[in-house]
Design a protein around this nucleic acid. Structure first.
Lengths: 222, 222
DNA sequence: ACGGTTTTCCGTACACCGCACGGAAAGGTC
DNA sequence: GACCTTTCCGTGCGGTGTACGGAAAACCGT
């Protein structure tokens, strides 16, 4: 019988796969946050039995590791250019990915990043700074300074955003947070960051400070 | 009847209190990690019924918030001195607290730090940098640069440490991590950090880079 | 075409979780 | 002794991750 008339039924190749699971996990994490990712919910989204997932994944931890490396892969490689611009571009993308997927910072704080995409992106930062002239222990420290700054910054940014943009009582909680800070922190000027939420500018300025410090260590060139 | 002869029995004042709960929570988190903190386990450690805890705390989230601010309170205020030394001392203490309580970075990545101790310690960093001569937006960015660096650094450090110092198969996993990195990362020099674990030196060097960048922004003074 | 092996799927069950509810016990006040 | 408030907590509900073992399907040598 022709393929056009045949009852196609369920596809003949395995219905599940690691890729499908990871893709669904990312979608679920984006939609519901880390608390919303349960193996049951994940399986339901794939129209599969819960235990079927375990054919492709040893544990929920595996799913999280894979989902994390998957979204890290969204960071596009920056083209060639002056090292500072390359780094600013690369790290801005880091930030954007973490903003798109707000569950990422909490995961990176828990596990070492050993996935292929994570290693690749880290290597890019290394080579950018090595190209600038750093090496050895100083190179290692500079890489740490910028990447940890970015991770930490976006983690805090997301936490604030989540606390302020809570679904209900939006305005009231915002007001309460602000009052809480006003009562306890002396420098009101620094609050403007929270008040106006110029997170982009603060991010870039902080990054610039760090890059200044790195630049000062470069072997003199003129 | 004299107090010496009276049967003292269970104390007559409330057996539980918020302080006792928080203290036990910190001890439990230190001993078993975040996964080991359940309301049942916490109550058992206090020889109380599970639901008794809810007389003093609205939810498990509350317990985590309180435990976090409690250990942040362990950071001792640094005495007066040159701003760089004050900051290095303060932030080194930040790191030590997070090393003593490895569950802290994951929590800070999830929630805004609004507790009294957190606000106080953050204010100290602010005033140190304000005393150095920064203000306004630059001050805010500089505070972010150093604190996020510290948080991120220790989070990564703890994650590595946990992955390598896993209870069983210590040496074998260590070897496997190392081989994994050697296969995927070009610059072996940067691996010395992992190999020898000179986390102290790397931490201080990275911090120095950032402080250099901050110092360059200070209004000229001589 | 068929028996046997391997891969894929998943229902059931267990031990654990946070916490809503409502009642028991104890202390304080007239 | 009656009443009220605070403290304690047993029970139960709806959720979790995943071990286990069996059913179903796909593949393969004959």
């Amino acid at each position: 019988m022709s393929i056009w008339l045949r009852e196609e039924g369920p596809a003949r190749k395995p219905r599940l796969s690691r890729e499908r699971i990871v893709e669904a996990a990312v979608a679920l994490l984006d939609a519901e946050g880390q608390a919303g990712l349960s193996m049951r919910a994940l399986a339901a989204r794939l129209r599969a039995g819960t235990m079927s997932l375990y054919e492709y994944v040893r544990s929920k931890e595996d799913v999280l590791d894979l989902a994390l490396d998957e979204v890290i892969g969204e960071i596009e490689p920056a083209g060639p250019g002056p090292w500072r611009e390359v780094l600013v571009g690369q790290l801005t993308q880091n930030r954007q990915v973490m903003r798109r997927h707000p569950w990422v910072p909490a995961l990176t704080a828990t596990r070492p990043l050993l996935g292929p995409n994570a290693l690749d992106r880290s290597r890019r930062v290394h080579t950018a700074l090595a190209g600038a002239g750093l090496s050895g222990f100083e190179l290692s420290a500079a890489v740490g300074a910028v990447t940890y700054y970015v991770n930490g910054y976006v983690a805090a940014e997301n936490a604030w955003w989540a606390a302020i943009r809570t679904p209900e009582a939006d305005a009231e909680i915002r007001e309460r947070v602000y009052r809480h800070l006003r009562e306890h922190v002396a420098e009101l000027a620094t609050l403007s960051q929270v008040e106006y939420g110029d997170f982009d500018g603060a991010f870039l300025l902080g990054l610039d400070l760090i890059l200044d410090g790195i630049q000062a260590r470069l072997p003199a060139k003129g």
